[in-house]
Design a protein around this nucleic acid. Structure first.
Lengths: 323, 323
DNA sequence: GCATATTTGTGCGTATGTATT
DNA sequence: TAATACATACGCACAAATATG
């Protein structure tokens, strides 16, 4: 076998280069002696996540599924990914240097580097070179998921208004839930975010839209996050990120800034004030426990022309995340 | 100034394909036919300002965060990815063999392979080796995005009930929209899916839950997809996929099948019949145009104990997508 | 079974960037 | 500010496994 097995290294026909032992030296690395890449019988058992063709079901009818053999780099990436997701490797942790990982996994450097590129594309690690460089671990964020979801949406020709409409569907029920709960902590948190919006709107004289909309987006996200539902929070974060990188940046080619700044500073300041009032009203409705009122109020806010840009440029602006 | 160009042509005699243009990616000479990877000016764009740590009240905006220089493999992967998303490369298309791509991009084989691993991890290509092997293109699917979103949720300790609750928030407004629209095509499509559920429930005697729940999930997904909103469709597909690979598979370690089959065939058949009736009622409400009724009916269905398993095992079953 | 085309995994060398001294 | 050591980035060539006809 070409691949060095975990424990048994047959080494049948010794070629010119003697294959190194799978685990030779671990430079002060904790958790030494892990088999790590045991591809033999375990490879068939591990679901290894949905591959390119979906989960393989041991069902009856379609016997004979095209099975894609996992590459070695993919196995290495999966092992590292699992340790990151499980929390064994936390944000900021530094992975051992390449030679140590090569020894631990029993793979060569190109293979290890392929695994690095995969994890780097997933933003789970960031590799820096230099003196104290190496791979550092990052926690998974909705931004990563948003990138791929955005790819799917772009491939399907979704518009910016489509994404906005999704937010308009998700958020009102969350507002209703908060009103039903009437938790003072929720109200306080929202008031804090509202104050943050005010501060930004007041301090910045040029009133660049990016900062203000970011603060307003944080308010919208909080409405979802305070419900405690992690799935909706992640989904909303994804949608917001897609909106942000598509239409929020003025320099983006897909930005609806074809007409450069149709609003003057005065109108923009007025709009900010109106938005602030709408947000404040939501907090009041939540504090009062007006379930239906909060939901309807938030639904209208998200359906408002100046917020959703319905039928306007947003509905003709297909997503363009790739430049 | 880029890295030294490949001075030697990579064995042009061995491959029969058209003579690859000797794109040597000479320094500062972008005049070649298809430079593809032109890193020069792009790298010069990054500000690369020194570490601004103790920035005490910088005047305008905190521009100047840590920039991560993109690796060559990442650039190659981005170019291929863009061509896939843009539709220039469609599902099933075969990419040129490795030597041709090496010549086109002007990179070495390890670099190209790193790009392949990245795209393969994103399920945008699938590489098979052998005579007529090579890289084949696949359309992006919500399954890919679901994988990363699931990673985020697992890292945050989300439960299966959490994911289900997200579906319960998204779907009722969609049902309301369908009832408001009263499109006969929607009703027909839902009736077809209902019939498909019946067929599966009747034909399969062993009544393995996997097939039936898949058909029922298709019905739920259709409620969202028929609204025409692509974002919500993709999101719902992601959530369903997470549920499917986590709790749906009986063999999955995270499946709530610790108590093996608490339901006998009789009870399960009864449940299927009840579910069928609930689905049929939704179709009727949509056909009648009962907006509030359809929304409330679907909300209750998704909150029903036998559907959401609320507070039961689902709420204690954290997602486990990595084995 | 055999020939062929293709990807896969490996080793080693050089270039480049980063932090420390 | 300049020299230096460390760690990754990228390149090339060889041997092996694999799928097709």
């Amino acid at each position: 076998m070409a691949r060095p097995a975990a424990s048994a290294a047959p080494r049948p026909g010794t070629s010119s280069p003697p294959p190194p032992p799978p685990v030779s030296r671990a430079a002060g690395a904790p958790g030494e002696g892990d088999p790590l890449v045991t591809r033999g019988p375990g490879a068939g058992l591990v679901p290894h996540l949905p591959g390119a063709f979906g989960a393989l079901r041991v069902s009856t009818s379609p016997v004979g599924r095209r099975v894609r053999v996992p590459k070695t780099a993919e196995l290495v990436a999966s092992q590292l990914r699992r340790r990151i997701i499980r929390g064994e490797l936390s944000e900021g942790d530094a992975l051992p240097p390449e030679p140590a990982l090569m020894a631990q996994f029993g793979v060569s450097r190109p293979t290890l580097r392929e695994a690095f590129r995969v994890l780097e594309a997933e933003a789970l690690i960031s590799v820096r070179r230099g003196a104290h460089g190496g791979a550092r671990v990052h926690a998974p964020s909705p931004v990563v998921a948003a990138r791929y979801a955005g790819l799917v949406l772009e491939h399907r020709g979704a518009t910016l208004g489509d994404v906005h409409q999704a937010c308009a569907v998700i958020e009102p029920p969350c507002a209703a839930l908060l009103a039903e709960r009437r938790d003072p902590a929720d109200v306080a948190a929202l008031r804090d975010l509202l104050a943050a919006c005010d501060e930004i709107a007041d301090e910045t004289m040029d009133l660049t839209a990016a900062d203000l909309t970011a603060a307003q987006s944080a308010f919208h996200l909080a409405v979802v996050e305070l419900t405690g539902n992690k799935s909706l929070s992640v989904l909303t974060g994804m949608l917001q990120h897609i909106v942000e990188i598509t239409g929020g940046q003025p320099g983006h080619p897909a930005a609806p800034a074809d007409q450069p700044d149709p609003l003057g500073p005065a109108e923009r300041r007025l709009k900010a004030r109106v938005t602030r009032q709408v947000h404040a009203t939501l907090i009041d409705l939540i504090e009062l426990g007006d379930v239906a009122g909060a939901q309807e109020h938030w639904r209208r806010h998200l359906a408002a022309p100046d917020h959703a840009i319905p039928g306007g440029p947003a509905d003709r602006c297909v997503l363009d995340l790739l430049g």
